[in-house]
Simulated scan of single mutants.
Amino acid sequence: MESIVITGAGTGLGKELALQYAQNGYSIILTARRIQPLIEVKQEIESLGGEAFAYPLDIRCYEEVYRTVNSIIQDHHVTCLVNNAGIGYFGPFSSLTHEQINEMIQTNVNGTIYMTKAFLPYFQTLPKAKVINIISTAGLRGKINESVYVATKFAIRGFSESLVKELEQTNISVTAVYMGGMDTPFWQGTDHIKDRSRLRSAQEVAKQIIALENGQPEIILS
Results as ranks from 00 to 15, higher is better:
residue 161 E to Q: 12
residue 200 R to L: 10
residue 130 K to A: 12
residue 26 Y to P: 02
residue 77 H to C: 11
residue 53 F to R: 08
residue 39 I to L: 15
residue 177 V to A: 05
residue 75 D to P: 01
residue 64 E to N: 11
residue 97 T to S: 15
residue 72 I to K: 07
residue 154 F to T: 00
residue 165 K to T: 04
residue 143 K to Y: 12
residue 87 I to N: 02
residue 152 T to R: 04
residue 166 E to R: 01
residue 44 E to G: 00
residue 221 L to C: 04
residue 197 S to W: 00
residue 219 I to F: 05
residue 109 V to R: 01
residue 10 G to K: 07
residue 11 T to L: 04
residue 44 E to Q: 13
residue 41 V to A: 11
residue 160 S to V: 06
residue 99 E to A: 12
residue 91 G to S: 11
residue 29 I to N: 12
residue 3 S to W: 10
residue 219 I to A: 06
residue 119 F to M: 13
residue 122 Y to S: 13
residue 86 G to H: 02
residue 154 F to C: 00
residue 165 K to M: 07
residue 207 K to I: 04
residue 184 T to E: 09
residue 172 I to Y: 09
residue 180 G to K: 15
residue 71 S to M: 11
residue 208 Q to F: 03
residue 126 L to D: 07
residue 129 A to D: 03
residue 48 L to W: 00
residue 156 I to C: 08
residue 191 D to R: 07
residue 27 S to E: 15
residue 60 R to M: 12
residue 64 E to C: 01
residue 206 A to R: 02
residue 207 K to H: 02
residue 202 A to R: 04
residue 152 T to C: 06
residue 118 A to K: 08
residue 155 A to K: 09
residue 1 M to H: 08
residue 84 N to V: 11
residue 193 I to V: 15
residue 186 F to A: 02
residue 211 A to V: 03
residue 146 E to C: 12
residue 61 C to K: 13
residue 144 I to S: 08
residue 3 S to D: 05
residue 176 A to F: 00
residue 159 F to N: 11
residue 185 P to L: 13
residue 163 L to A: 05
residue 105 I to C: 05
residue 112 T to D: 10
residue 138 A to S: 15
residue 35 I to G: 01
residue 116 T to V: 12
residue 15 K to N: 03
residue 79 T to C: 12
residue 101 I to M: 14
residue 143 K to P: 00
residue 13 L to V: 09
residue 87 I to Y: 01
residue 16 E to D: 10
residue 22 A to H: 06
residue 148 V to W: 04
residue 222 S to D: 15
residue 215 G to K: 08
residue 109 V to G: 01
residue 91 G to W: 09
